[in-house]
Design a protein around this nucleic acid. Sequence first.
RNA 1: GGGGAUGUGGCGCAAUUGGUUAGCGUACCAGACUGUCGAUCUGGUGGUUGCGAGUUCGAGUCUCGUCAUCCUCGCCA
Length: 607
Amino acid sequence: MRTHTCGQLRAEDVDTEVVLAGWVANRRDHGVVHFVDLRDRYGMIQLVADEDAPEGGMEGLSGLHPEDVIQVKGVVRMRVEGQRNPDRDTGDVEVLVSSASKISSAARLPFEIADHIDVPEEMLMRYRYLDMRRSPMQERMKLRTIANHAFRKALIEEGFYEIETPMLTRSTPEGARDYLVPSRMRQGSWYALPQSPQLFKQLSMVGGMDKYFQIARCMRDEDLRADRQPEFTQLDMEMSFVDEEDVYSLVESVMAAVYREIKGVELQLPLERMPYAESVRRFASDKPDLRNPIEVVDLASEGAVLDFVVFNNVLKDGGWVRGIRVPAGSSLSRKQVDSIEAAAKDAGAGGAAWCKVTADGPTGPLSRFLKAKEDEHPVVCPVGIAGLSEAGAAFLKALNASPGDLVVTIADAPRRAMTALDAIRNKAGALMDLIQGPDCLLWITEFPLFEETDDGGYHPAHHPFTCPVMDDVEALKSGEKESIRSRAYDLVLNGVELGSGSVRIHDRDLQKSIFKAIGLSEEVANERFAFLLEAFRYGVPPHAGFAIGLDRLYALLFGADTIRDVIAFPKTATASCPLTGAPSVVDETQMGELGISQLVPENLNEA
RNA sequence: GGGGAUGUGGCGCAAUUGGUUAGCGUACCAGACUGUCGAUCUGGUGGUUGCGAGUUCGAGUCUCGUCAUCCUCGCCA
């Protein structure tokens, strides 16, 4: 159908007879000269019909509409000096058209196919096939292919097998909410779509596959975010006879391969590592962006809590009183400081108390707790801040604040305080333009094995197949769950959790005791994980693995704002697909075959 | 499940803060035009303001509800 693509022709092709096909990107009709820009995935070429063109040319290029699909025959010719287009690879030449035929005509478009347009994202998703014709999506799909290939190549060269695991599998309700699929053959029973190939990759290790990887789709029926989709893609890996060091170096080498391929940079290896406890203490986060130099100070443990009723009450209830120093932050406007407080509130905290530090003394809402009272002598402050009380001086000393800085504090229950501190740290870092420099990849290690649930129970922080740190196993026996560290690790890129993994349990008894610790009775554990526990009877290699969230990685690597931008056909925040209209109501007969009936009236769903 | 933002021709925005026939840009359509490349010029089609109710002489504008999209807390082993 074509001899060349639209991005292919150059000066050396002059006088070649060509057949081209593509979409009409633009027309410029000058009466006796017609131009058409013909576009395909490979580029854009200018077609022309003028007085030199055979008769069919002018006729063929008339009456075309944007995005019509056409096929043209013609001859490549050099453009006259001064009429070349240096912005286009094909800009030195054009095709003098001898005939053109319309293969498929396009209706009026919902939006222009151009790079400069500003269209609601919902519109782009509803007409994704049109959005895909534009260069941002073209570029991202290309980069995604290159990056996927780089990962595959690196892993296969390391001796990994690519193993496809089932999409119809068993429900594991202790994790995220499952997407369920009814079984027709065995009515009343259900498959679940995989939240991850976790158990199958472990079974592959029992099966002696030694090194497994898969670019795997995972489904989780939970609420969405800018960086969360109901189905997403992971680079999933597992290795036998290894420990965490082997996993770190493998993941580092495949990440380096992708950075080389996509960004043309060499990653500095090995990557920095930080234990979870240190990360939480210094950055109030298990995924800190270390490009941001701001650190969190625990004012209570520094003995620097002000006599402020809000702080006192929070501490009494076991909460956190912690703060950050924003270097040179007193240059921020009131509006900008308010936006930091708004970030704290948005993260669920009651608010954020702040003051600006000047040589004449602190200013702002918190300042009255820092200043010496009228009957007190102000403290002589070593960094030269006037009018401070002793408590005020200690407070600023703990934060290492000096004139010109801004200090922001959060007082709240630990979990909320952590979210809020992370939010204000990020916000302040962004406002002060502190977040600079090359991409920051970092390992967070020694995650806690368990997390306390709202009802006072415990559930696995990672998943129940994670091996505890051996030194902490004694604590497991004595029931001190919260202090047990795990051999789980996360990879963090610029403050985004890119992936996680762990050394797995390969001992049947240890696995059983973990099930017990998370409140799974032996019967339930046996019922749900019988296949795993049984497999563990037949010789299990020690194994460990990792999974990288590719959508998140690619969003960062390709400079996209959300993971939707790097997914060909993404879903909305309510997990619906604007293109196909999924999820949709199904026929009664379809449900009948599956032995299910609808409880919710249909009109509720359709409203 | 909670909080917040947004919703006006296909798209981007405006409408003197409750007052005539909802305006502009762009796209689209038609015509003109010897070289354009986000062409240009002229003309034209197209909306009752997401949906529903209410207040009012009068609602794009105020109130309540609802829906959709986005952000976010919870949630995401």
